[in-house]
Amino acid sequence: MRFLLDAGQRAFAGSLHALLTAADTPAVARDWARGDHARGRALWSRIAGAGVFGLAVAEEYGGAGPHPVELAAAFVELGRHAVPGPLAETAGAAVLLAGSASAGRFLPGLAAGTELATVAAPGGWAVDGDAASVRLRPGPEGLYLSTAPPGPVRRSLDPARRLTRLAPAGELLCADAPYDRALVWTRLATAAQALGVGLALLDRTVDHVRRRTQFGVPVGSFQAVKHRLADAKTALEFARPLVFGAAVSQCPAQVAAAKLAAGEAAYTTARTALHLHGAIGYTAEYDLSLWLTKARALRSAWGTPEECRDLVLAQGL
């Protein structure tokens, strides 16, 4: 038993953090929200170049995976930097296609970052269908590649998530895909991303309340402010081991618990962040909005809190 990231894993996350810090991800996310994908695609290539998508792809298809722990570490960083795009969906698509006859056709592009994939949630939206070249949709006879253009983009509460309906027709790729396993990966990635979103919201809010003065002192010296931030910190730090524990076990109930805890911690932190920033936090222009809105969207993506609770209750932990 050793439940700590090792030096290599920490260095991997650290280098991704450095890459993203230098990439002006808030500007990239704002472009993406307008449907301008140019800078987002360039960043996507660099993220793929760092090996992120390859963590969900086997070596024979150009990846290095499966490495769910490293994937979780990477997605914490992607969330921390509000990176836009169908990130968890691309990881999940790689798992969906892994055993199929189409693996060699799609997986190398997903690992290399030349292809972006989205997956329609059952009966639901496909995020960034306008940007993704690989659009997957479970259907009555199996897994389909949606070939016709997706429907019009609907705005998400998180402007950087562009929601589309995938066209119903398409190419039947395989009769049976590993949906449960793919959902584990997609949900795990989303949980890790939510954790990263929460950590960023906490960092930015701590920074704000240290600098903002009222009544002649930093507002961060007031207990009413401190205690909300302490609660957010505690919620995030107890969600973190669930995320990494779920990455190790890949057990559906553990992954559901991780998604539940990370999603709730991030959302609670978002509420705290909005409140403690005061009115400036309530503006679209201020970059905090990128994380505030994402925390809400990720809370219900790939497993609402209630769906996750059902799994926890059915299987126990």
Binding site: F3, P241, L242, L260, L313, G316
Partner: peptide, 24 residues
């Protein structure tokens, strides 16, 4: 329902947090 699920989740989180602390 939600509170039972949250208690199970929190107990597991506390266990894993302790495993991480022991590892450190």
């Amino acid at each position: 329902r939600a509170r039972v699920a949250d208690a199970l989740t929190a107990a597991r989180a506390y266990q894993l947090f302790a495993y991480a602390a022991v590892s450190r």
